[in-house]
Design a protein around this nucleic acid. Structure first.
Length: 229
DNA sequence: GCGACAG
DNA sequence: ATCTTGTCGC
């Protein structure tokens, strides 16, 4: 089976073409909070990919968790050839083909998807999570391990503290502390989620570790799928 | 022009 | 992302 897409998924031949596609899709971004409320029942999926440059392979994983208990309820993987090179700002074109494949193999469509990367915290306000959200119509957020090119002050040392992630004067995301005294994560909305909502979801999903349980599970599974391929 | 730059 | 052992600490 596969996921119905609201917009065609395309693999561009050049970076310039990719930027044009990106700008076209960007107009469909919605940040109205029509996605699930934090704490609401349902499923949350984490997606991630791993690469084997030597074999030109990419492996993606989608792991669905119960949004309330954080128990794993479903998992799926997809392995295929790498379709696009790594270009900062164009990561979606490299990761999404395999991710869409894996997501489509879940038994049930998740109510929220958590990406390992950015949503609107992006040089053109359209990162990986934004791209995935617009293509599928699903609510998405991005939780990254690094601040990319954006400025921020360190948040207070306690869990839940945050500071704005700034692109000039615009708050495009937040540096959010998910554990006391541990390096923050960098959260931004992708699609159908507000910035406040994205942070609340990230905090709910990262209770025991720095990273959301969704990304931890997906990271483990895609590495496993790659080594098994 | 060069470097930096999510994964 | 990936190449990679042990080690310190809760």
């Amino acid at each position: 089976m596969s996921l119905p897409l609201r917009h065609p998924h395309t693999t561009p031949a050049t970076a310039a073409e990719a930027e044009a596609i990106q700008l076209g899709l960007r107009r469909h971004t919605v940040l109205d909070g029509s996605g699930p409320a934090p704490g609401a029942p349902g499923t949350v999926a984490g997606v991630d990919v791993a690469y084997d440059d030597g074999r030109d392979l990419v492996a993606a994983a989608a792991v669905a968790l119960d949004a309330v208990t954080l128990e794993v309820v479903d998992r799926a993987t997809a392995v295929g050839p790498v379709a696009f090179p790594y270009v900062p700002g164009l990561l979606a074109f490299r990761e999404l083909p395999a991710v869409l494949d894996a997501l489509g193999r879940l038994r049930r469509t998740p109510d929220l998807v958590v990406c390992d990367g950015y949503g609107i915290a992006h040089p053109r306000r359209f990162g990986l999570a934004s791209h995935l959200g617009v293509l599928t119509g699903l609510p998405t957020i991005g939780v990254a391990k690094n601040p990319f090119t954006f400025r921020h002050q360190p948040p207070a040392p306690h869990r839940g503290a945050f500071t704005p992630l700034l692109d000039g004067d615009t708050e495009v995301g937040r540096a959010l502390r998910t554990r006391d005294g541990v390096k923050p994560v960098f959260v931004s909305p992708g699609h159908r989620v507000t910035l406040d909502g994205a942070c609340a979801h990230a905090l709910d999903l990262a209770t025991h570790y720095r990273l959301p349980e969704t990304t931890r599970q997906a990271d483990r599974l895609c590495r496993q799928a790659l080594s098994a391929a």
